[in-house]
Nucleic acid binder design. Structure first.
Lengths: 185, 185, 185, 185
DNA sequence: TATGAATGAGACTTCATTCAT
DNA sequence: AATGAATGAAGTCTCATTCAT
C-alpha cells in the first residue's frame, strides 16, 4: 500500500514538473509517465484522465492559499503587522511550491469553466480579505485592489518569471504597503 | 483583391471570437472556418497554421500597446497628468478590443517560448515606462511595480472577468494613483 | 459529392465484408479502412464510430424485411400461396445480401440493448405476420411459431452455415409448410 | 483443496452471471473477479484466459445436451413418446441452467472458429437425432429440420427472451409435434 | 481564390495478463 | 493459493494540414 501511495506521488511530482515546463495542453500523459518512470497504464490506475491529475495539482495551491487566508481572517493585530505576516507567509508558501504555483498562476486562466473559475475565486478571496482587513479605512476597495494587484504582479513576474529572490520581493512588497498606507488615515 | 482581404478579415474576426470563447487549445481550425463561413482549405490560403493566426491576433494588441507606450514616453507634461491620460488611453483601447485583449491576457501565459515572451515583454515595457516616468521619485521601481500590478489587475479581473464599466475602472485607477503618489515626494 | 457517396459506400461494403468474416468485436476500424482502401481518419468523416456503421448495416436488413412483411400483410390471396411467395421473396432477398444477413443473424444476438432488440423485433414481426395470416386456423399461434422457427433455422444453418442452395431450401420450406398445413382444418 | 475448488466455482458462477448479462466481449476479467469477490490475479490461477473460462462454461451446456441426446438415441419406445420425453428433458435441463444456456445460445454464434463450431455441432446433433428417430417416415429430413427449428425458436425466444413459463412452452412444443406428425404416415 | 474530402500522425484510454509479495 | 499493483500492447478517435478540382 505504501508502494501505491508512492506511485501516485511519483505521478503527481512528475506531472507538476512537466506541466510547469510545457503547460497543460502541450503535456502528454506519456510525458508524465516517462518522467515518473512508470508504465502508461499505471497512470490510469490513479487518475481518470490528464484533466484529473491537473485538477488535483491545482487543488494543492488552492488549499494552501485558502487555509492561509482563513487563518489570517480572524487576526486582531495591528493591520500593517497582519499584512506583513500574511504576505510573508503566502509568498514563502508559494515560493516553496514554485512549480505548483507556476501551474496555478499560468495554466488556469487559459482554461474553461471550473478550472478558470478556480483562479478567479482565489483572486476574489484575496481581494475580499484585504477589503475586510482595511474596512475601517476610506477607499478600502481601492486599497485592496492595489495590494492584490501589486502582490500578484510581484509573485508572478518577479518571482516566477524573473527568478528574483523571494526575500527581496517580500521586502519590496512591505515597502509598497508602507507607501500605500502612509498617506492614509 | 478586396475580396480576399475580406476573407482574411472574416477569418481573423472569427478566430478572435472563438479563441476568446474557448481558448487557443480548445479551438479547432474547423471552429474558426465554421464561424467565418468559409471552407476548411481556405484557412490555409491566408495562414500557415493555427499558431500563425493566433500570433497575428496577439500582435494586434502588442502593436496597440507598444505604440501607445512609445508615444507617451516622450511626453513632458506633469507626471500625474501623463499617467492619467496614458492609462485612460490604454484602458479605452483595450476595452474597445475586448476580445483580442482577452486573448492576449488570458491565452498567452500558458504557452511556451515566444508566445509567452510576448506577454512578458509588454509587461516589462509597462514597468519600464513607469520607472522612467517616475525616475525623479524615490522608490520609483516599487511605484512602477505597484502601478502596473494595479492596472493589470483592474483590467483583467474587473473589466474582462467581472465586466465592470471601463469608466468606473479608470476612475478607480486614477484614485489609486493619487493614493500612491500622495505620500510621495 | 458523388465522390463522397462512393467513399461512404466503399466503407459500408468493406465493413460488411469484415464484420461478416470476423464478427463485430473482432473487427477493428483499421480492418475496415484497409479493406476499403481509405485512410483511418476518413472513416470518421462518415461514421461517428464502429458502432454506428454496424447499426447502419443492420438497418439495411431490417429495412428489407420490414418492407416485405408490410407488403405481404395486406395480401388477400390463398394463404398457402401467400406463404409461398412471401417466403420465396424473403429467402431470395436475404440470400442476395448474404453477408449483411449473416451479420444480422449472427452478430446481433450477442450484443446489448437496442442492437439485440433489433433482432428480437424482426423475429416478433415474423411471428405476428404468420399469426395474422393464419388467424382463421386453430392453433395459429403454434403454427406461426413452427413456421418462423423452421424458416429461421433453414436460412441461418442450411443457407448461411452449410451453404445449401437457396432454391433447394425454398423447396424444403414449401414442403414443410405443406406438411404443417396438411393436417389442419 | 476444497478451498481452491470453491474459488474456481465462485469464478465460474460469477462469469456465468456476467457473461449472460453483458456478453462475452463486453465482459472484463475485472467484472468477473469483482463479482466473485477475489483478486484479479486469482483468476489466472484457475484459468489461462478469459477465453478459457468461457469455453469451460459453454462445455457445461454442451455436455448436458450431448449426454441427453446420446441417452435417447438408443431409445426404442414409441416415437412420439420419445420426442415428448426427450424434449421435456432438454427443455427442463436448459431451463434449470438458464444463464449458461443463455450464453450458449446467444454468445457463441458471433464468435469465430471452434467456438461458433460448438453451437453448430450441437445443432447438427439435434438434427441428426431427429432424422434417425424419424428414419422410417417419409421426409424425415424435413421433419427433423422443422422440429429442431421449432424447438430452438421456442427456447431462445419464448423462454430466454420473453420469459415464458417452461411448462407452457413444453406443452406448445408437444402440440406442435402432434400437428407435424398428424398428417404423416 | 475557394472548396471540402481525404489524410495519417499521434494522443488518449482500456484491459488482459504478469509478477513480486 | 491469493493478492492487487503494474504493465504495455492495442485500439479508438481527433484534428491540423494537404490537395485535386
Amino acid at each position: 500500500m505504501s508502494q501505491s501511495v508512492s506511485t501516485r506521488d511519483k505521478l503527481i511530482s512528475a506531472a507538476v514538473k512537466v506541466f510547469s515546463e510545457k503547460g497543460f495542453f502541450n503535456t502528454k500523459v506519456s510525458d508524465i509517465v516517462k518522467e515518473a518512470g512508470v508504465a502508461q497504464g499505471t497512470f490510469y490506475i490513479y487518475f481518470r484522465s490528464k484533466e484529473e491529475i491537473f485538477l488535483r495539482i491545482t487543488e494543492l495551491v488552492e488549499g494552501l492559499i485558502d487555509e492561509t487566508i482563513e487563518r489570517y481572517r480572524r487576526s486582531k493585530e495591528n493591520i500593517r503587522e497582519v499584512i506583513y505576516s500574511f504576505a510573508e507567509e503566502v509568498f514563502y508558501t508559494l515560493d516553496r511550491f514554485k512549480e505548483v504555483s507556476y501551474i496555478f498562476f499560468f495554466q488556469l486562466l487559459c482554461m474553461q469553466d471550473e478550472l478558470k473559475e478556480k483562479y478567479i475565486n482565489i483572486h476574489r478571496k484575496f481581494v475580499q480579505f484585504y477589503r475586510e482587513l482595511l474596512s475601517e479605512y476610506e477607499n478600502n476597495h481601492i486599497l485592496a485592489d492595489m495590494i492584490v494587484g501589486f502582490g500578484e504582479k510581484l509573485f508572478k513576474f518577479d518571482v516566477l518569471i524573473e527568478g528574483r529572490e523571494i526575500k527581496d520581493v517580500i521586502d519590496e512588497f512591505k515597502s509598497g504597503i508602507d507607501i500605500i498606507l502612509r498617506g492614509i488615515r
